[in-house]
Design a protein around this nucleic acid. Structure first.
Length: 482
RNA sequence: GCUCCCUUAGCUCAGUCGGUUAGAGCGGCGGACUGUUAAUCCGUAGGUCCAAGGUUCAAGUCCUUGAGGGAGCGCCA
């Protein structure tokens, strides 16, 4: 007999038919009622056993976490709380679960404890919901881009370029660490390394994506990304997944439209397809809010928050306008900011971004046209703008409540001379990036793209608070367990 | 990398001003009940108070150092 998935049974409710289910015991009540979950849905199937028909030794092995198989007739439930239930005829214990040793329990356990037991945390309601939603969001992203004619490009994970300028990198080498080959001047000789040069794990697929975009028109990457920064926050990982679309002939405005459409699309996708899982996370969040002081509680529930983002236009304003708002803001005048907003030209601190998003506008904000001095070499240089004190670039950052920067992107500098000048100013080695510069020498065109931190998106949609809880096995400073 | 906080039973946490025998709920185990919804009721076992050192007549409680964890900041997605 073929196994049925609990998701299918609960959807189709094939009453009076014979079904076989397999799954893990979530609760065994009254020596009669097993709440069975097989991961196909957040909901459990009620498996009813007549304890007089089964031997006590078998019933004794039905513990929280045990894996069982049950065959029987699906009937309308005689109790309240569920529509259908399984009247069990055959029961088999597939895997025992000794409650004395099993770390998980049928009660609320802290995210920190579960993180230390990340190999088992999929089995909790919260984490199974998080990972089903994570899957749905990944699928929605592929669907969004596919439906719009984008080409999914796999950019390399090992790179010889250390000029990407996005932070510290992890070295990839097969050289002996104890006794590496040396050059005559005593430096490590990477000519003898596996690739014949020094290599690292990628910090971004953007530069390669640009190469693709300038032929395929519209491409996106979706792959792992590595940053060896010693970042200890709730929104940084050393290994994370990033989506990087890159589109020929797009300007900054097109770029913002694309990012905004994509975020709305995937959030709506989750609202439409993950209602059960979102309910679990919403209830969890509501409980958590109750423990906070009244003034720190969120006014919106999780789904309300998601709907709010999907139904409202993002606020778009320039860096210069943002500085004006911040300079005249109450917290700045009253000296409440740890970093007072003084002049034009310095980067915004996260307290400033949070003020704009969470207090001033109360919706997602896209900041554009940042000072050139604080942004990357490849961003397109703006023509001097009236009332703006210094040179700016066509950059855009999308800021979300609670998360901060979820997207960072720009229109790219497509003009060869401008790009080379900028690289020289910022000491980016031209020789190493000859292939990047070639796109500007041969048939260059305006184009734009951005990077979306996938885990930050999952963080927002699930309402979790620590990014380490939305990736299965997080990597961060001091931790590469599992 | 910087700042602050935490570490007590399997889990979540309480433990007053340093004071005598270390507390609860959940979970476990034993029993009762048998249409339950994290079932309920009765009983019961369970402790290197993170580690080392120090102060003190006396340390879970105070001090120092270390380990592990969390939050914030910086770096960014």
């Amino acid at each position: 007999m073929q196994r049925s998935k609990i998701a299918d049974i609960l959807r189709e409710e094939p009453v009076n038919s014979e079904v076989l289910v397999k799954g893990w015991v979530k609760a065994f009540r009254n020596n009669q009622f097993i709440a069975l979950n097989d991961g196909s849905t957040a909901s459990n199937l009620q498996v009813v056993v007549d304890f007089e028909r089964f031997d006590a030794a078998t019933l004794d092995r039905i513990k929280f976490g045990a894996c069982i198989s049950a065959t029987g007739t699906l009937v309308e439930s005689q109790g309240k709380g569920q529509k259908v239930e399984l009247k069990t005829e055959v029961l088999e214990i597939l895997g025992d679960c000794n409650p004395d040793e099993y770390p998980l329990q049928p009660k609320k356990q802290s995210p920190e404890f579960l993180r230390e037991n990340a190999h088992l945390r999929f089995r909790t309601n919260t984490f199974s919901a998080v990972f089903r939603i994570r899957h749905a969001l990944a699928y929605a992203i592929h669907k969004f881009f596919n439906d719009r004619g984008f080409c999914y490009l796999h950019t390399p994970i090992i790179t010889a370029s250390d000029a990407e300028g996005a932070g510290e990198m992890f070295r990839v080498t097969t050289l002996s660490m104890e006794n590496p080959p040396r050059t005559e001047s005593g430096e490590i000789n990477f000519k003898e390394d596996f690739f014949g040069k020094s290599t690292n794990l990628t910090v971004s697929g953007q530069l390669e994506a640009e190469l693709g975009a300038l032929a395929l028109g519209a491409v996106y990457t979706f792959g792992p990304t590595f940053r060896a920064e010693n970042s200890n926050t709730t929104r940084h990982l050393a290994e994370f997944w990033m989506i990087e679309p890159e589109v020929a002939f797009n300007d900054l405005r097109d770029n913002m439209d694309l990012a905004e459409d994509m975020l709305r699309y995937v959030i709506n996708y989750a609202l439409e397809h993950c209602a059960d899982d979102l309910k679990i996370l919403e209830d969890r969040l509501t409980e958590e809010e109750k423990t906070k002081p009244q003034d720190q509680r969120s006014e919106l529930s999780l789904t309300e928050k998601l709907k709010f983002v999907s139904e409202n236009e993002f606020i778009r304003l320039t860096y210069t306008e943002a500085i004006d708002i911040l300079r005249n803001s109450n917290p700045n005048k009253k000296g409440k900011f740890q970093f007072p907003v003084e002049g034009w030209g310095t980067d915004l601190q996260s307290e400033h971004e949070r003020y704009l998003v969470e207090k001033h506008f109360k919706k997602p904000v896209i900041l554009t046209n940042y000072p050139a001095a604080i942004k990357a070499f490849y961003m397109r240089q703006d023509e001097p703008l009236e009332g703006v004190p210094g040179p700016t670039v066509s950059a855009m950052d999308i800021l979300f409540p609670g998360i901060g920067e979820i997207v960072g992107g720009s229109q790219r500098e497509e003009r060869y001379d401008r790009l080379v000048n900028r690289m020289r100013e910022m000491h980016i080695p031209e020789e190493e990036l000859y292939w990047y510069l070639d796109t500007r020498r041969f048939g260059t065109c305006p184009h734009a793209g951005f990077g979306l931190g996938f885990e930050r998106l999952v963080l927002f949609v699930t309402g979790m608070t620590n990014i380490r809880d939305v990736i299965a096995f997080p990597r961060y400073p001091g931790s590469a367990e599992f």
